[in-house]
């Protein structure tokens, strides 16, 4: 800003800030809608006019993790008193919580959520691990055709998932890897590896070569210098890369839709599949979605200073 500001500049500045605030509200409204639906009583989720403010409920989350039936008669007061508070909220709504056992199966959501967690965590560790080594290689050594190799690596990231999925589906079918965690993990490692190499190369390039040279002179081998000097220096970069890879694997839909259907299915294909015929229970779906989106929202705040680097594959650093 120039030192001297005219009154019209000040006014324009105020208008701009007001516009930013309005835009923020508009952009957050859909997210508020998901989050608020997760805390709404069933009938308010699809009310006309739409409900914006209401007394929050926990029942959608209870529904997510229990099986219930409609009560035929009023519940025994003793049973009611003995029930935990969240179960009472279900009784109040005219339903009875069933004990999950041999005959009563829990909803599939917890399993799908766990699948997402397993696949995302393992694929992230592998992609970032391999990516870190490779990035160091590209950062420190002269490599014939380096630019072409890096382009090749990045181009694997750009392949449309459906294009890769057709042959992979056929090969997995032969290898018995369809609907398996390992199959999905391999695909996610392949998808994230190029990103991890590019992003980590940016971080590695920023670590001065002189650090390792000093270590070598001090009697370290190159591998020791890498593990004891370079890796600790790259810790922030590794963490940022890992969070990006985790979010990508966590959110991935197309591969999971095509390659899994039951045992290894992750949350992204599962959550939309709950909308079938009839009137879906949006509150329970929203509760599941809320828990699914929460880690991503937290990670976005942790990553905020690295987002630009991440979405440009490390090319633009700010």
């Amino acid at each position: 800003m120039a030192a001297v500001r005219t009154s019209s500049e000040v006014a324009f500045n105020r208008i701009a800030i007001a516009a930013v605030l309005i835009a923020t509200l508009v952009f957050l409204a859909p997210i508020y809608w998901i989050a608020s639906t997760a805390f709404k009583p069933k009938e308010l989720a699809v009310s006309v006019p739409p409900t914006v403010l209401f007394e929050p409920e926990v029942t959608p989350f209870v529904r997510l993790f229990t099986k219930r039936v409609q009560m035929q008669k009023t519940v025994d007061p003793q049973v009611y008193d003995a029930a935990p508070w969240w179960e009472k909220r279900i009784y109040d709504g005219g339903e009875r919580v069933l004990k999950v056992g041999k005959d009563v199966q829990l909803s599939q959501y917890p399993d799908r959520f766990m699948n997402s967690l397993i696949v995302a965590v393992i694929s992230t560790v592998l992609a970032v691990g391999m990516g870190t080594f490779t990035a160091y290689g590209f950062s420190r050594f002269k490599i014939a055709g380096e630019a072409d190799l890096l382009f090749f690596i990045l181009s694997t990231r750009m392949l449309p998932p459906v294009v890769v999925a057709i042959p992979m589906f056929l090969m997995y079918r032969m290898a018995g890897l369809n609907d398996s965690h390992i199959g999905l993990i391999i695909l996610y490692v392949a998808f994230n590896l190029s990103f991890s190499v590019w992003l980590m190369k940016g971080f590695m390039d920023e670590i001065p070569k002189e650090y390792e040279e000093a270590a070598l002179v001090d009697g370290y081998t190159r591998m020791q210098a890498f593990f004891k000097i370079v890796l600790p220096e790259a810790a922030t970069g590794i963490a940022a890369t890992a969070v990006f890879c985790f979010i990508t694997a966590w959110n991935e839909y197309a591969f999971a839709l095509i390659m899994t259907n039951r045992r290894a299915q992750t949350a992204p294909p599962f959550i939309p599949s709950q909308i079938g015929s009839g009137l879906p229970d949006w509150t329970t779906i929203a509760a599941g979605t809320f828990l699914f989106l929460l880690p991503v929202a937290i990670f976005t705040f942790l990553l905020r200073n690295h987002l630009l680097r991440g979405v440009t594959f490390g090319a633009i650093r700010k």
Partner: peptide, 17 residues
């Protein structure tokens, strides 16, 4: 950061809602 939230979310879930 709040404005950046939408692009970090799962497109399939966004589409559903």
């Amino acid at each position: 950061t709040l404005l950046l939230l939408p692009m970090m979310m799962s497109a399939a879930v966004v589409g559903l809602f």
